[in-house]
Design a protein around this nucleic acid. Structure first.
Lengths: 301, 301
DNA sequence: CGGTTTTCCTGACCAAAGTCAGGGAAATGG
DNA sequence: CCATTTCCCTGACTTTGGTCAGGAAAACCG
């Protein structure tokens, strides 16, 4: 990335910290400490466990406990042990808490309005569009990818969602028993690997890589959660898997896919995969692709 | 502004506070309090007066004095009375201070880099472009406009810059003595008014309005500093002056201008001004415009 | 020249934010 | 069923950020 880009980002950071960051906190915490206000906000309509709050806000457990006690004594939240595990405590908003949260909500609207107010219609439209773009791309940049065991709860969550989606999208439905499904062992070192993408700790996508000895590497079970699409995650999965395949000394990467997954087919093509004749008997596949990896992983960014 | 716009801005505020704001402070203040780090940064290469620092950071005078003393005892800054006015104290970075500031600088680069790193080339380019747009428009939204006395130092600063610019741009040069210059009294209530635009307290533009009894209102001496152009300030001045003219019961607004000021001529046209025959003997004018204000001030956002 | 204003500094004070060590109850794992 | 771990709470503590009232020195103004 160029120095010019870095400078633009720095100017942005500066302007936005000053204009949005500071105001945000002052608006939010007008009649109660910012910490409490943020916490109240994070509890949300449906309640949260203490652990979830701690992770999301990145605060010390003792500190958060004290903040919660303060909110509780103000009658804004109630706390009760979870049925399943009585060590874990759930935090719920009371009616008063909900009211207070609505106030924060309104302030947040006010702040947003105050940013737009001095601008004319055309400028507003442009600012809002640019903000949406920044939001989308920063969110994309926040997504982490990590290799995990295919039995990991996050991995299993993604796989279940993946199969459910296939059932809905394939004309013929989808029966895992008929498909050439790799078992977990094939997607776990040393015979393969399995990536999970997460946003704020929540799993939002997965992709597996088979590394069979003496045969080309093969991508399996790539999936991105519907609400996380259009963030370039598919591309990022492919790049990451290519790099890892190269790292394992492979020079050819394969995959098969179903015609119902049109966006995926387009993605493969645009990432340099070429359609080839069937290289397996997967009954649900209509397209087979492969890509040479000689100097792979550098085709884009 | 629509609910959809507000929501986009709110999502933006949230994402950006979390990603940029928090990181910004933590990166900056890794080994010294954020307050001190920000202050050290603001002192900058060329030094600042205490007053300038106070205004820019918006901090209490006692607080800033203590922060400075702490930086001084760490050997990062020196303070000395200004030659001209010994009450005012100038803050200067020592070599150690410069080194420390360079560290902050590098961290700021790192933060910027870490935001871009997970993205591919195309995404980076789009993010940087969108950030530049947000920066530009938020800066525009930060500009304040205030009516001041034409003798106010900020007003005089703008007027001097304005005349200097006219001298450079007019083919014939510009001699104030030959021009139909309103005296200060004509641009001060009750006979008129004078607006100054400021960004972070610095004057960056001006515009005067004559409200002669029994004659149409007239715009005079509109100027925007070169570094603040393309922010829509010209439009904003016109809108503001139109509103104020309407507020004073006027229904016609006039102005004259020189052909060397092409962008201004374009602006007047696009804001609904129509060219009319000369209505005065201004020797430096080539174009005369007017605009009906029946329901003025609502033509745009 | 004498009163007023400006500029910065000082000391006293405070709340918010955060850290750390430990402890009790519940769950887990051999 | 016992040792270990997990989860949270508690109390004691520190740092940071910030306010306020006043005060000394310099500059300004009539």
């Amino acid at each position: 990335m160029g120095a010019e880009q870095i400078n633009t980002v720095r100017r942005f950071n500066r302007t936005v910290s000053a204009r949005v960051g500071v105001l945000h906190d002052h608006f939010l915490g007008r009649d109660r400490p910012v910490g409490e206000a943020r916490l109240l906000w994070e509890v949300g309509e449906h309640g949260q466990t203490v652990r979830q709050l701690r992770e999301r806000l990145g605060l010390d457990s003792g500190y958060i406990s004290r903040l919660l006690r303060s909110l509780e004594s103000d009658g804004l939240v109630t706390m009760e042990p979870q049925p399943g595990d009585k060590r874990v405590r759930s935090v719920l908003l009371t009616d008063a808490g909900r009211t207070e949260r609505a106030v924060l909500d309104r302030r947040s609207d006010e702040l947003a309005g105050s940013l737009l107010a001095p601008l004319n219609t055309a400028q507003r439209a442009r600012l809002v569009a640019a903000m949406a773009e920044v939001d989308r791309l920063l969110t994309a940049a926040t997504v982490t990818m990590e290799a995990v065991d295919p039995r990991h709860p996050d991995a299993e969550h993604c796989l279940r969602s993946y199969f459910t989606e296939l059932q809905e999208r394939f004309e013929t439905g989808f029966d895992p028993a008929l498909s050439l499904l790799p078992d977990a062992g094939e997607l776990r070192p040393p015979r393969g690997l399995f990536l999970v993408a997460r946003l704020h700790g929540e799993p939002i996508g997965c992709a597996g890589l088979k590394l069979p000895p003496g045969a080309p590497a093969e991508i399996k079970r790539m999936w991105v959660a519907p609400h996380a699409r259009r963030l370039g995650l598919g591309r990022r999965f492919l790049t990451e898997l290519e790099e890892r395949a190269v790292g394992h000394g492979r020079d050819l990467l394969r995959l098969d896919t179903n015609k119902a997954l049109a966006p995926a087919v387009g993605l493969y093509r645009s990432c340099g995969f070429e359609e080839v004749p069937a290289f397996n008997d997967e009954p649900y596949a209509h397209h087979w692709f492969e890509k040479r990896l000689n100097r792979g992983g550098e085709w884009q960014g």
